[in-house]
Amino acid sequence: MQKLREWQHAMRASLIARDPAVNESLAAGIAPDRLDVYRNTILSGLTRALRLAYPAVERLVGAEFFDGAADIFIRTHLPRTAYLDQYGDAFPEFLQGFAPAAALPYLADVARLEWAVNGALHAADETPLELAQLAAVGVEDQARISFQARASLQLLRTHYPADAIWHAVLNRDDETLAALDLGTGPVFLLIERGADGITVNRSSEPEWLFLSALCAGELLESALEAAPDIDAPAALAAHLAAGRFVAFTVSAPATEQTREIAA
């Protein structure tokens, strides 16, 4: 008798790569083409998941091209989780190296933006940090605060103006799309989920770098030091007011620790 685990591996090889080995396990009179029903369901279900996450990419390349690219992507990048809202994170990189899409150099950037939008859309609900909690931190400890950003906040830097392309494509605004200057340099984006849905906003590079440092969990002190050209305290206040953080920690002062060890 064939062991279940080996048999399931053989089924996978059949369903994804048409390896014929599993056909021997089919009962007499069962034509192997019946397995196409499962192949179709898997492929169409995963393609639908990608289509939901990447609607602008689909409009840019057309449905037929999208299906073809999805087919190749799916066979080489099966989901690692059964929670399909998280499926497709590798699609932007795949598109970046996908030769048939080379005529659209900005396609991967638009895909990166759509993946950030997808992440903001499906992130778990969280309660924003309340200013009162922060007010309890003593002045002497404030430099050693680090924040945890909400999961529905995504930061993205793209080489092409992905946000402008994305807006124009989803609004079917061909005029704006045709007039877009692709060579304006990188854009720095904040993607977040509010009460009314997803917003995508541009930020300046220094403001974006400051928020990136905070979101990466850097100490407030070092994030401030790395942002000499902006009004960082005002920026921090705005982020807090917008509910972009959900928690904070105060690290122990490194110098005192050193002193203790020395003593």
Binding site: H9, M11, I16, T41, R80, A82
Partner: peptide, 14 residues
Amino acid sequence: VVDGSYLADLLPLP
């Protein structure tokens, strides 16, 4: 699920 991959269908068991 096999080998950590999710084959997005309800596949038949022997």
